[in-house]
């Protein structure tokens, strides 16, 4: 009692200080501002700065070369290839995982469903599994001689490919892992949205004689639209930054067919130690993600699903 009074008292005094003197308010914010600037904004600005230098092997010399890193980047077919690969990955993973997530959420939401929470945890499990660990398992699954993928196909008399070294199938394998990782997230958000739709809508539709499919088409689907848009935007942003599974499964190969932009940046910056060039790739990724994020704010608002 006494304690909460005391706390209230302090809060009110703080409020008074802030109103009276904005400078003092700023001082209160300072600790947070210092931390955000030194650990977020300063590194980001340094990357922009670094992208104008030729700096290799962490050597003491750094040469200012203006936009040369960007010119080299935009003239390099491997960069455009990585953009293409990343786009294919992003579009496939986002659309397919939203589609499957939606269907599964409707199924899991059925009231009579047996072992409801078991299914929910099952589909959510991939999200809490570290990607690297999951990718190690998938690497075994896709192993051409001992992997279960090919053993499964062999049941149907199909000779499975050497998945991770096949130009046609390597990216497919990576996309499959991406979808598997993402379904659970989509499922949970759809489930939350589904459960916020009042039962009355369905009841009155049933009175009007709408069947299950009509109810989905005219009630569920339109009311899920904001969630769908948000999941699409988040999915695109998240998939564009794909890295872990490529590193574990294919390292960008065969040839360059799975070389996503994140791996291309990592390789240049941290294996080849071309820091300036790597920084310029980071800047390009940064700009693309920034644009997507701004689009997301415009479509779905600054926050998340709740703001519809």
């Amino acid at each position: 009692m006494n304690k909460s009074l005391n706390q209230n008292h302090i809060l009110m005094r703080l409020q008074r200080i802030v109103q009276r003197d904005p400078f003092q308010a700023f001082l209160f914010l300072l600790p947070a501002v210092i931390i955000i600037f030194s650990f977020s904004y300063y590194p980001i600005l340094s990357i922009f700065n670094l992208s104008f230098f030729k700096w290799e092997n962490l050597s003491p010399e750094r040469t200012f070369i203006g936009f040369q890193n960007y010119i080299n980047l935009f003239q390099n077919p491997r960069f455009w290839n990585s953009m293409k690969v990343t786009s294919i990955y992003t579009v496939s993973v986002t659309t397919i995982s939203i589609f499957i997530g939606l269907i599964l959420s409707v199924v899991v939401n059925i009231k009579q469903l047996f072992l409801k929470s078991f299914w929910r945890s099952l589909f959510f499990l991939p999200i809490v599994t570290p990607t690297v660990a999951a990718a190690m398992v998938w690497r075994l699954l896709f192993n051409s001689s001992v992997g279960y993928a090919n053993k499964f196909l062999a049941i149907f008399q199909i000779q499975g490919p050497n998945w991770l070294a096949d130009k046609q199938w390597a990216l497919f394998a990576i996309v499959l892992l991406g979808i598997w990782k993402r379904i659970g997230f989509n499922l949970i958000l759809y489930l939350a949205a589904l459960q916020s739709i009042p039962d009355e809508y369905y009841e009155s539709a049933m009175v009007d004689g709408a069947n299950r499919y009509k109810r989905f088409q005219h009630i569920t689907f339109p009311l899920l639209r904001p969630t769908t848009i948000m999941l699409a935007m988040l999915g695109i942003i998240d998939s564009f930054l794909v890295f872990d599974q490529v590193m574990v499964l294919t390292r960008g190969g065969p040839i360059n067919t799975t070389e996503v932009i994140g791996w291309y940046m990592y390789n240049n910056a941290f294996s080849f130690l071309k820091m300036g060039y790597g920084a310029s790739i980071s800047v390009v990724i940064f700009i693309i993600i920034a644009v997507l994020t701004i689009l997301q704010w415009r479509f779905v608002g600054f926050g998340s699903a709740e703001q519809e």
């Binding site: 960008g252 190969g253 040839i255 360059n256 080849f272």
Partner: peptide, 22 residues
């Protein structure tokens, strides 16, 4: 050479096409 990592990466990508029969 300090460029060995990059050389090796580029080399492996190209000869892999022959190893895989492409």
């Amino acid at each position: 050479t300090p460029k060995y990592n990059e050389v090796s990466d580029a080399f492996s990508r190209e000869i892999q096409a022959a190893l895989l029969g492409d």
